[in-house]
Design a protein around this nucleic acid. Structure first.
Lengths: 168, 168
DNA sequence: GGCAATTGTTGTCGTCAACAACAATCTTTC
DNA sequence: GAAAGATTGTTGTTGACGACAACAATTGCC
């Protein structure tokens, strides 16, 4: 809202810039949209920060972060997956997944079951507790998704999802 | 390209899933798009990772990362800004900006000049070297932007920029 | 049977956001 | 005009995260 607000009131009061010439800006927040507009990466980064913060806040009561949510969702939809498979699917390193699963297993959401076919790998499953918890997480995530709709508009969100479908 | 490729060949060969029933998945990469589709945050995160990696690679020869580029751009467009103002404009913490400027000042792109009006603050300026360097960075950034067009399509990129304009 | 590849694990390194504390310096208020 | 409060730049810590490298156990290849 900061950016859009700044955008909105960029010309409301004449401000004191009138007679400043080359003097350094004093106020600070009327910096102007400079050359950063037109850079997709910048806009996407700012949006991603906003969206993650809203996700974290909305799922704050259950203490679940976006990455944890994605891990639980993938396991819930594909029980028995190996850690390697989950890591590849989510584009995270297997080293990182180890810690994520440690935490999720400690909270009794996930079980690591030694695979019979390949004794190197673990088959990942949700616990019963994990199933019901994930159901709640999904409700909260849907609420978060509605926040996104409010923020950028319903059809804009749909459009964006379509544009970025290849990255999912 | 991994994601889109997986999407593309999700049904090319009948695969061996046919008779597996409840058996654990063995192959790993036909995990399926599960319930993660429809989550804006996830798509945006993946896209943001891709776009940053391309930016870093494209600006690799000059060793400039996205955040550094954004700092240089803002200072170039608004010389004399204070660190606080730049930090606020870019949505980064002033603590973080200190290190960024340390590095950019060491490379002679930026000067910190003690302000006369407010002796707490520094007025930020590009050096002559910084000006010419930034010009080159902007050319490379434009090349990166063309990569984005190739990746998601020209009008999709334009659409996306319009949707996210409020965050810039 | 031996050698290369894979899986989970541990550890290190660098980036980045979020805080907290601090000294120097404004700004406000009485 | 002096005290109290706010702001600016700085330093430091913490935790999430990606990138790598090394390792033991196990599997697959030949």
């Amino acid at each position: 809202m900061t950016a859009s607000a700044a955008r909105a009131d960029s010309r409301p009061t004449p401000r004191k810039r009138a007679g400043n010439g080359a003097a350094p800006r004093d106020v600070a927040d009327d910096v102007g949209l400079d050359a950063l507009a037109g850079h997709a990466g910048y806009a996407v980064r700012r949006f991603q920060i906003w969206i993650f913060q809203d996700f974290i806040k909305t799922l704050g009561e259950v203490d679940i972060r976006p990455t944890q949510y994605s891990v639980l969702t993938v396991i819930g939809a594909n029980p028995g997956l190996s850690q390697m498979a989950v890591a590849k699917r989510l584009g995270i390193e297997r080293a990182r997944l180890v810690h994520l699963l440690d935490s999720l297993e400690q909270r009794r959401f996930v079980k690591r079951i030694k695979s019979k076919e390949d004794r190197r790998s673990h088959a990942l499953h949700l616990t019963a507790q994990g199933e019901t918890a994930l159901a709640k997480f999904k409700r909260l995530a849907a609420e978060h998704e509605r926040h996104v709709e409010v923020k950028i508009g319903r059809e804009n969100r749909a459009h964006l999802l379509r544009i970025l479908a290849g990255f999912t």
